[in-house]
Design a protein around this nucleic acid. Structure first.
Lengths: 149, 149
DNA sequence: TATTGTTATACTCTATAACTATA
DNA sequence: TATAGTTATAGAGTATAACAATA
């Protein structure tokens, strides 16, 4: 006898629908990334390092909007798992240049396939063009939010 | 000289774009709700109680997917601010029936106007029909995530 | 003087187990 | 025995201040 309560007053807001959809994605994604020993955040950071060889910790932090102190433990975790390597920069000996290892590349590719399958599950019964339109709208929203930090 | 790093490998995923858009929304929304002394979660709970007079704490928790223990402090906060009242149920003396107060109604309406303005800011330069399409897609994604908890 | 990475710390959000009072 | 609300607590995730090494 679960009384059927309403949330119409919140459903009119895109933010409410965004949060609920993101919660659903997050739960499924974290479960499927766990098989690769990764979390959402470590998967993202590993992807960025793979795509930008030699990037610094502060570069990853800026790109993914993570505070530098919080970056440290993420990088530590990836390095201890031997998925990335930290090399002192020749030009600036304060900084590290981050690169993905061969082990990291294998693990990332495995995780990537899992994420692709996860996305297919979450986007079931939705046309590719509708997903593309949604992503376009989401990027405009993200862009509208910048410059107001 | 902020090197211009790439995140193309993540932009193909709807989840990544969803998270970034939600982060942008969350930051702006919390800032604009603070003027009403509310947060995202207390605004949502207050809206649900307004829309479902007499709803129980467990009903709100189920609807908004919040654990019951975490609900307690939220309800405490709203009651102490005199925005809602807790009445013992006549039929089941374990439960509370939650109702919004006149003060709560006024505060909610004020916050609602702020949220409407916030949504207009975040959705600037996006056609209403595109927002509606995005919400529809988001609801399908949310629905695809259910039944897999 | 500013910046990279670091440490310590704190605050929010979320999740679980166990209790109480009622049913 | 099961449920509504509660307490205590622990784990993420996130944010700020201050430091050492280097620029």
């Amino acid at each position: 006898m679960t009384k059927d309560h309403k949330d119409d007053s919140l459903r009119i807001f895109s933010g409410y629908n965004l949060k609920r959809a993101f919660n659903a994605i997050q739960m499924d994604l974290n479960a499927c990334l766990a098989q690769s020993g990764l979390r959402m955040i470590t998967f993202s950071v590993l992807s960025i390092i793979d795509e930008n060889p030699g990037i610094r910790q502060s570069g990853v932090a800026e790109l993914l909007v993570i505070e530098r102190p919080n970056m440290v433990v993420i990088i530590d975790e990836l390095e201890q798992a031997m998925l990335i390597q930290r090399d002192r920069s020749e030009q600036d000996r304060r900084a590290y240049e981050l690169r993905i290892t061969d082990t990291g590349k294998t693990r990332l590719e495995q995780a990537r396939q899992a994420v692709i399958q996860h996305e297919a599950r979450m986007c079931k019964d939705i046309a590719d063009s509708d997903i593309a339109d949604m992503i376009s709208t989401l990027r405009t929203i993200e862009s509208n939010g910048l410059g107001r930090s």
